[in-house]
Nucleic acid binder design. Structure first.
Lengths: 233, 233
DNA sequence: CATGCTATTATGTATATACATAATACATGA
DNA sequence: TCATGTATTATGTATATACATAATAGCATG
């Protein structure tokens, strides 16, 4: 018996992880049930449950009532990216943040935008473009449409000193959203703002947020060439 | 009193979420402590704890002992991307998966690779390039270096029918890793394989995995132009 | 033989209780 | 005043117990 004291759920989790990493329990394998593990580790079933549930949340285990718990196969890695306010992202890297409003207009949106936001094609929406700077160098270009039918308050903001990004987060709740990552070639306009050659490969993050069944905003953030989003798995 | 029965942790979570979305509790606000909420909801503190802990895991609440629980400010969205086996990714979209080995060689790696893998610059490593197809169209180009000092078994594989991607997941454990997303222009070679114009904007996913303190593999996956990675937040 | 009922089983959750731990506030002493 | 110790407090965790729920297997019935 190689177990003496794993009286904490972290301890149980560690030991289970070890067995998975050591291939004692291989991907696809059914592992002992909670009661057995509790007996083996000398702790309550609740504690084992906590440990296994946490691993299942992380994608390493798959659990089904009655069927039992098995090691996830194939091990799907879950990469969690923090989508923060751009100002914080810049400041966290120890750089000086800057902000420039590039455009603010109220007009009918392109069809793919009005469709995504679920509003009529001739509905006049608020369109804001802004440049985020890191140590005075272009960092990201934000291209945003705001559903003013749902967020009329946005019309009273000039977004000259506070970005739409931050204003919305502070003032408008959202309950769900979609996010998509893609690579896009820089248009002539993108290139001008980001101070890079036309057709440069840019990392694009598209977000669409909803407050219950009302769309709030559709935004595309284009990062300067070379930008990376990193995380651990 | 607008609360009668939230006897489940999901119920408590929903009500707390509702209050956050309704701005009854604003970002930065300290919310009542577990004991008070338990009394209000007519359930055990454990149940409230479960609900709040889950919300904190999701990044919506920030909790500190003694200090209490507050609504996260600014609301950092966590986007969780599933990094699956490419074959499954293709098949899940209902497409026919195809695989072509493009290159397999053993040689000294470029310095940035050997440095990332933490091996000597003149160490000969296994280099594999392969094309993943979706309905016979190029889907992704995999460019991989394997640390054969730690994974000698890879030298016995020809990777002609099973991708290195899948073989490694099935056979070599890893305990931690890094992942980075970026946009890159297609090189002439990339363009040839992916059947796209040179300098096309490609979404690049770079992964580096470790088994305890031994590097396993460094891989770059370049997706065909227009590819998106999506998730909900 | 197919269909539906039932028992069984493993996970999922709720509770009271107890104690652990971290962080703050307050008091105390040099 | 400053440092240090101490009490307080909110979250964190472990436990036994009980019951809920989903999925399966096996049985019974038409």
């Amino acid at each position: 018996m190689n177990v003496q004291a794993a009286q904490t759920w972290q301890g149980v989790q560690e030991e289970v992880l070890r067995r998975i990493h050591a291939r004692e329990w291989k991907p696809g394998d059914l592992i002992p049930n909670e009661a057995e593990l509790a007996k083996e580790f000398g702790c309550a079933r609740t504690t084992v449950n906590r440990a296994l549930r946490s691993l299942a949340d992380g994608g390493l285990l798959e659990r089904r009532r009655k069927a039992g718990t098995r090691v996830a196969a194939p091990p799907v890695a879950k990469a969690t990216l923090n989508i923060a306010v751009i100002r914080h992202e810049v400041e966290d890297r120890g750089a000086r943040y800057g902000y420039q409003l590039a455009l603010r207009e109220v007009r009918a949106a392109p069809t793919h935008i009005s469709a995504a936001l679920g509003v009529g094609v001739q509905e006049r929406l608020l369109h804001v473009m802004a440049l985020h700077l890191s140590n005075d160098a272009p960092y990201a270009l934000e291209d945003r449409w705001i559903n003013t039918l749902h967020v009329p308050g946005a019309l009273g903001q000039d977004f000259r000193s506070v970005s739409a990004n931050e204003w919305l987060l502070q003032n408008v709740p959202y309950t769900k959203g979609e996010i998509a990552f893609a690579a896009k070639p820089a248009t002539a306009e993108n290139a001008k703002h980001l101070n890079c050659p036309e057709n440069s490969a840019l990392l694009a993050v598209n977000r669409l947020t909803w407050d219950h069944d009302q769309s709030v905003t559709a935004v595309q953030v284009l990062f300067a060439p070379g930008h990376q989003m990193r995380t651990r798995i």
